[in-house]
Design a protein around this nucleic acid. Structure first.
Length: 144
DNA sequence: TAGGCCATCTGGTCCT
DNA sequence: AGGACCAGATGGCCTA
């Protein structure tokens, strides 16, 4: 857990001074604010858990650094488009050898087999897979 | 030190 | 009324 802002306590409400309100109303407002803050924290934690799960199923291309949220979304988009492309290509070439090739592709996109995405048997494989993933880490760009 | 990324707080809006 | 969601503000941490 990261450190929290020292200036903003859970009581939360420098802005909600007692003013003309009764102490009871001030207390109620403070309690509600604290509860809302806690809910918001929990909600954001849920969101971050979802991002972590997404990171696990999205290829990282050997990046040792954890993908940022933005990068994760861009990579997920790119990944989905790549899978879509595999399916489209498979429909175009529906012969037996390509069936084999398609099976291989599907094997490779299983999360437990991601290492095989990083190991290319031929330059052609490397070109194809890289061309399928349009997301570039450097440029933060997706070509669709 | 600047810039990127992130967690948290907060007030507003919408929905139940 | 209260919860969920969102966006803006703020400050901490890390890296080049």
């Amino acid at each position: 857990m990261k450190s929290r802002r020292p200036s903003c306590t859970d009581s939360g409400s420098e802005s909600s001074e007692p003013d003309s309100k009764s102490p009871e109303k001030y207390e109620t407002a403070t309690r509600r604010r604290m509860a809302a803050n806690a809910r918001e924290r929990k909600r954001m934690q849920g969101l971050n858990t979802a991002f972590d799960r997404l990171r696990k199923v999205v290829p990282q291309w050997g990046q040792d650094k954890k993908l940022s949220k933005y990068e994760t979304l861009q990579m997920a988009l790119s990944y989905i488009m790549a899978l879509n492309r595999i399916l489209t290509d498979a429909r175009k070439h529906n012969s037996a050898p390509h069936r084999q090739w398609l099976d291989l592709q599907f094997d490779c996109v299983q999360p437990e087999n991601y290492p095989c995405l990083m190991r290319y048997d031929s330059p052609t494989d490397q070109d194809y897979i890289h061309s399928s993933f349009s997301y570039q880490f450097d440029g933060h760009q997706v070509h669709g």
